[in-house]
Structures are given as structure tokens and as C-alpha cells.
Design a protein around this nucleic acid. Structure first.
Lengths: 233, 233
DNA sequence: AACCCATTAGGTACGACTTATTCAAGAGGC
DNA sequence: GCCTCTTGAATAAGTCGTACCTAATGGGTT
């Protein structure tokens, strides 16, 4: 999933990005373009393009006569989906999941409230459909199917909010949900209470009840945070 | 501010980024690397590096035999500070300011609540200092000084929340506040009510009262949204 | 309608040269 | 003798130009 074979550039970028965000190349460490070219057996051209991209993500800083320096964590573009993927694949995955879940708990209630005001009939229909899909896959170890509906559900809410910044968080939420399902130990079926809340949220949005939508989403978020507390150290 | 003279790469990137995000090169339009190299009078190497960066921001898509295509707005990395700056400098600045302000209204109350729990003594002190600075500069057309304190104030709250994702929104908030002060017509001194709210927020954080901090921040956000409704079409 | 080939524009490689930084050695002053 | 300032050599990124590879496209042939 992380490694694509569509070109040298992508491969080198992915490898380096992963190494940096996993702490393998700690902040302050220096990379040399020539060495990298040698190591990956590609031309300096490719390396330079990769470095420029990493630089645009504020992962590294390139200075003459000194080389490419890994920048401190605080400057990274942590909202870049690419960076998020790298970090979720790396070492401090738990910390990362927690940060993102807290972010969700701030955004999604407001987004749901807005969605209850602005959602189109079509969006309401698809939302209900996804909620029913979650119900249908909530028993009998159909975790992958459940995950798919869960992701789609939250994406619709974020899109229906009508706010571009919220909508673009769909990818982040997808990563978080996928991470939770795949990496946290999750032998059992999803919490029935959570499933019910999603159904109720779909109803609230359909009926145009912003307060209820916000309240219910907050409950979902609290559940997610609680789940994280229980499963993670 | 937008145009830096530190290298060809930066100049070309900035120009193209601005042209794309301002809609001058609408989604679907095609750029050719050779043409760009000619236009900016730089080598194709430089252009390619720029394209790669724009590609990592999902502003463009590069395909063989067809050229570099501008992608639809929905795919852009709108959380990239660079993209935000370009868009705020461009055409639909009002829409952008509104989106970002709504985002703020979702994030900052939660961040303030967390800050009330986690803020260090030092952070509390600096927060109070900044609030007093806002009071001091709130009269007599000292808009620039007020802006500086305002930005610092909100940055401290976001940092003190202890959540990395919130902290990294400091730059976004700074852009929004700066945009409001500089571009919206703002002859008059800031709203006294807003100033008072900031002072009260500093108190709430210092006294470790999350509920009050959240409530007060919500009031600030409502004020900001209202101000936007009044001043913008 | 299916296939093939010429064309096109990005992808990669290599080598030469330029420029900003750094570091250290040497000149000068205290 | 020690410290500071200057100068210059070394270094690694920045830029350029060219040559060639590769994949996607569109048209022409069967």
C-alpha cells in the first residue's frame, strides 16, 4: 500500500519519507545527494526532485555546502496525507492515532451540525444507506466490509458540511479508521452502541437537526477516544 | 512577502502556484515543461522540480505524452500553508477566509479547553502578557501591534493544548488574522468585546477551567464569524 | 473494429560548470 | 603568546544542456 512501483521518483520518495518520519534519520542528521544517488542507484536528478518534495513538506532543509538536513518534528506538514501515512506506518503510531482522533473529535461534531443544515437529499440517502451497511456488517467478523461503510459514512458527513477544509479531512479520517481496524487488535465485532449512534446520526442529518447531529457525533468521538485509551498504552 | 528571491526554483514555484490557485490556470488546463522552461528562461531541470512539488500538493498531475494537467480544486492539499497563502493572495479570498474561520471555530474551543488543563506556568504567563498587550494596543489605531499580540495569543493557546495537530494550525490562524487586518477594510479599532474575551480566556486558562475556556473561545469565534458576515458579501 | 506504428512529452541519466557556505590557515593587532 | 579578522581553498548544492528511454496517444492501415 505504501510502496508503489510507478517510477523511481515515487519509490525513493516513499523510502526516504518513511525513514525520516519514523525517526530513523533523526532531526539534525544530514543527507548528501550524491550518497543518496549512489545508495538508490539513481541519478542525482531523481534525488533532487525527491529532496525538493520533502522540502516542501518541511521534512528537510537543503543548504549549500552542508547538505540536506532533517528538520525538527514541529515544522513538519502534519496535515499532508502523505506524511500522515508515513507516520502511521512508523514508530509512534499510537501517539499519532491519538492526535488525529482528538482532531476528529473537534472537527466532526461541527461538521455534522453543518451537514444537518446543508446536506442534499442524495447525501442523506447515501448516508442512511451506509449506516444500514454498517448495521449489516456489524456482526460475524465482517470487519473489512464494516470499515468500508464506516469510512464512506464519515466522508459523506464531512463533504455534506459544505466546508472545504472539513471535506478535505476525509482522507485523514479514512487513515485513522483503517489504522484502528488493521493495527489495533480488534478480534471482536464493533461496539453495537457505536453502530446505533451512526444510525441515529444519519437520522438527525436527514431530519435537519443540527443540535442532535452534533451531540450524537460527540458521543461517537468520546467512544473512539475511550476505545483508544483501553487498547493503547 | 510572497515573492522571495532565494533561487530560481522558489520564484518559479511561487509564480506557478499563484497562477494555479488563483484560477488563472483553471483545472483541466495543460502545461508543458518545455514551454515553461522557455517562459521563465530556466532549464527544464528547474521546471521539473517545481512540477514535482506542485504534484505533491496535488495541484497538478503529470502524465506522459499529455503534459502537466491542473487538477480539480477538491484534490488540493488545502492544509498546506503554502497553498493557503497562495489562495489568500488570489481571487476568492473571501470564500477562503470564511472556510478557515469556520475551521477555527471548530478547533480553537477544543484547543482552549485542553490548554486549560495542560498549559504550563510559563505559557499562562505569556498568555496573560499577550492579552494585556492586546488591551494596550486596542485603541488609537495601533492595528499592527494589536495583530502581533493577537497572533501570538492564539498560537500559545494552540501550542498549550498539547496536541500536535492543533499546534500546527498556528500558521493558518496567523494567516487568517493577518488577512482580516490587512485586507478587510478595518479603519476602526478592534471590537472592545473581543479584547475583553481574550483577557477572560487568559484567566480561564490560568485558573485551569476548561469549560470556561471553551465557552469563551466559542464566543470569540462567533464574533469572528459575525464580523465576516458584516464585512464580506 | 482491431491492430500497429509514428509521434509526442514526460522520465531518467550524465557531465560540466556556478555559487553560496564553511572551515581553516595565515596575517595583523592587542 | 593569544585573540580577532581576513582570505582562500574545499565542498556540496544549484543550474544547465544534451542525449536517450519510455509510455501514452492518435491516426492510418488492414
Amino acid at each position: 500500500m505504501t510502496t508503489q512501483s510507478q517510477g523511481l521518483h515515487t519509490h525513493v520518495l516513499d523510502t526516504l519519507g518513511l525513514e525520516i518520519s519514523s525517526g530513523q534519520c533523526p532531526p539534525g542528521s544530514v543527507l548528501r545527494t550524491d550518497e543518496l544517488a549512489q545508495r538508490f542507484d539513481v541519478s542525482r536528478t531523481v534525488i533532487r526532485e525527491v529532496i525538493r518534495v520533502l522540502e516542501s513538506m518541511h521534512l528537510v532543509e537543503s543548504r549549500r555546502r552542508v547538505g540536506v538536513t532533517v528538520r525538527p518534528t514541529e515544522t513538519w506538514n502534519v496535515y499532508d496525507p502523505q506524511v500522515i501515512r508515513w507516520r502511521l506506518a512508523g514508530a509512534d503510531r499510537p501517539r499519532q492515532l491519538r492526535s488525529l482522533t482528538v482532531l476528529r473529535s473537534a472537527i466532526e461534531p461541527v461538521a455534522a451540525s453543518l451537514a444537518a443544515r446543508h446536506a442534499t437529499a442524495e447525501q442523506c440517502a447515501e448516508l442512511t444507506e451506509r449506516a444500514l451497511g454498517m448495521v449489516a456488517t456489524s456482526r460475524g467478523h465482517q470487519l473489512e466490509g464494516y470499515l468500508e461503510h464506516d469510512i464512506a459514512f464519515h466522508r459523506i458527513v464531512l463533504n455534506a458540511s459544505g466546508n472545504e477544509m472539513f471535506a478535505r479531512l476525509g482522507d485523514v479520517v479514512a487513515e485513522v479508521l483503517a489504522g484502528r481496524t488493521h493495527h489495533q487488535v480488534m478480534f471482536e465485532d464493533p461496539d453495537p452502541a457505536a453502530v446505533t449512534l451512526h444510525v441515529r446520526l444519519a437520522e438527525a442529518v436527514r431530519e435537519g437537526d443540527p443540535e442532535a447531529a452534533e451531540r450524537i457525533t460527540k458521543e461517537i468521538a468520546v467512544g473512539a477516544l475511550h476505545e483508544l485509551d483501553v487498547l493503547a498504552p
